[in-house]
Nucleic acid binder design. Sequence first.
DNA 1: TTCTTATCTGAGTATATGCTCAAATATACA
DNA 2: TGTATATTTGAGCATATACTCAGATAAGAA
Lengths: 119, 119
Amino acid sequence: MPKQTNDLCDCRLIHRQAVEEARASALAPNETASLAQTFKALADETRLKILWALEKREMCVCDLAAMLSLTESAVSHQLRLLRNLQLVANRRNGVVLYYRLTDNHVSQLINITLEHLRD
Amino acid sequence: MPKQTNDLCDCRLIHRQAVEEARASALAPNETASLAQTFKALADETRLKILWALEKREMCVCDLAAMLSLTESAVSHQLRLLRNLQLVANRRNGVVLYYRLTDNHVSQLINITLEHLRD
DNA sequence: TTCTTATCTGAGTATATGCTCAAATATACA
DNA sequence: TGTATATTTGAGCATATACTCAGATAAGAA
């Protein structure tokens, strides 16, 4: 069989139609980027522990630091990342900032993944 | 107010009870690690594109490479990672390996996150 | 067997990122 | 004002990782 010509890329191509359909139904570039960014936020043990804790109660930075045995600086950096993605929000009471989850999507994502891991 | 003593860590501690409750209900270490590992698999644009395509149809390595304009080596490395986490499986037909999603959890995770991003 | 194709693998490299450290803000209170 | 506390911020470092490249397997055909 001669090597198929290929105007889609430099690679071999066995099932032209499957490739074209996959490209047609692909996610928009900005959607892919946003998805990756959000999953990246969940792809770190420290941030997962923070989110899991905030699912039950709002907490301030120094409490989270105590819970995690981390510096407040480290926690603050992670909270900023989560805040920029609008996964957490905060309210101020004097000098203390209380963080909470913005919606229940994070809980859903963690629970579905836990379910997947049990199989 | 005197600085509170703190037997949980070296950090300040404002709400002792909140910290203790958070620690009591924390995820098991191996659960946290597995969760992070799974989300890490989703936290990359190439792997997301692969998973999104496999949600619709099974595909072989060279088709995925063509679809993504990547080398087959690069795709193969990513598929190995996804296979090790049992997010994808494959079947062999001669020399060709066809990859597919192992279950529908990945679809759920992507769709919930897309929903979150629309808010 | 030998050749070809599809896929896999290990090493190397460039980039991304989580933490620490030092210093800057922000708010409350004397 | 000035001081104390809670949090934030930027720079630097050490590790993780996505891709490339060269070469190794695996299965079918000649």
